[in-house]
Amino acid sequence: MDRAFAGTRCSKTKLLISKNLKVFKDIDANDKDNLFLVSEYVNDIYDYLYQLEEQQPIFKNHLSGQKEVSPKMRAVLIDWLNEVHLQFELIPETFQLAVAIIDRYLQVIKDTKRTHFQLLGITALFIATKYEVQLPSAIEDFVSITDKIYTARQICQMELQILKAIDYSLSRPLPIQFLRRYSKAAEAKDKHHSMAKYFIELAALDYDLCSYKPSEIAAASLFLSLNLLNGNYRNREGFKDHHWSDTLSFYSRYSAIHLRPISGKIAMLARDAPKAKLMAVFNKYKDNNFQKIALRPELRSHLMTL
C-alpha cells in the first residue's frame, strides 16, 4: 500500500458548492489538525503543480530528429529501469522522475548516441534517487548494475549534461503526486490506488502517451481503475462516467469525457501486458508485494476489449 496515500484518507467530508453550482466534497475538512497534510495550503500547492506541468511539457513526437534513438529503444530502456528500480527497492517517485528526465533530455538533445543511451537511463535514475531519496544509493551501485560498461566518471559527466539540458530543473510534477490527491477525492480503496499505479507505470513505456500531462495520466489511470473494479460501466463508445463524481472532476480538473480516450489507450496496454515483449511492469505487479494487481480478473474481462 502507498503510505503517502494511506496518510491522506479521511472518513468524513464537508460539502461545498463550486462556481458552476455542482456539489463537491471538501476532502481536506478533517485534516486541519494534521500538520503533515498542510490542509491550509494544499490547494495552492496543487495549483502550482498544475502550472509546472504546463511549463515543462513533453511534446508530441518528441523523438523526431533523433538519428539513433527510436521509440522502441526508449521503451526497452524504461522497461529495464523499472527492473533496476525494483531491485534497488526505490519509491515510485524515483522511477517516474527518471522517465521524465529522460524524455525532457531527449526532446532537447537531438544527437543522442545509441552507445550512450543506457548511460542516459542509469544517470537519470541516479539523479532521481538523489532528488527523492533521503539516503540514495552510492554511484558504485549504478556502475555495477550496468555490468561496469560505464564508469563513475562517465555517469558524473552525463549528470552534468542532463542537468544543463533540462536547465537544472527537477520540479516537473509526477503522476503519483496527482494520483494520491485524486485517490483521496475518490475515497478510493487500496486496490483502486494500486491498480492505478500499475496503469501509470505501463503508460510510462508507451511513446504515444508521453505527451499527456502527468495529471492526465494519473486521472485516466484512476478513472480506468474505478470503472473496472466498481462495476461494468463501458459500452462501445468507451467508459462511462458513473464513477467520476463532481468531486473528482473538481479536484482533478478533468471531466469523464476528457479522460475516456486516454483510459482506453491505457486499457489496451493492460490488456496486452501478459503477452508483451517488455514484461518488467507486469511481472512486478503480479507479485504478492503488489497485491497481484496485474492478475486481477477484471483486467481480462470483456471491458478491456470493447
Rank of each mutant, 00 (worst) to 15 (best):
G7T: 12
K113C: 13
Y131H: 12
D190Q: 14
A128C: 09
I217E: 00
N235M: 05
Q177V: 03
R104Y: 00
N61V: 10
K284D: 11
K164L: 10
Q161Y: 05
R296Y: 06
K292M: 14
L97C: 03
C210G: 08
L209W: 01
Q291L: 15
A203C: 08
L259M: 13
S64N: 12
G121R: 03
T146K: 03
Q291W: 12
R260H: 10
A218M: 03
T112F: 03
I17M: 13
Y251D: 00
E83F: 03
T123H: 02
F126S: 05
R74E: 09
K275Y: 14
Y105R: 10
I149D: 08
Y182C: 01
I27H: 00
E298V: 13
S211A: 13
F24V: 05
Q291K: 15
F126R: 02
L49T: 05
E237V: 10
K113V: 12
A100M: 06
T129K: 01
I200C: 05
K292Y: 11
L303V: 10
K240D: 07
N227M: 06
K130I: 07
K292V: 11
I45P: 07
S171N: 14
A267H: 04
A29E: 14
K189Q: 15
S301A: 10
D141F: 06
S211M: 01
K113H: 13
E216P: 08
L209G: 06
E201A: 06
A267I: 09
Q96T: 04
A165M: 09
T94I: 07
K22P: 09
K110M: 15
F5G: 04
K12A: 07
C10F: 06
Y251W: 05
F59E: 11
D272G: 09
F178L: 03
I27Y: 02
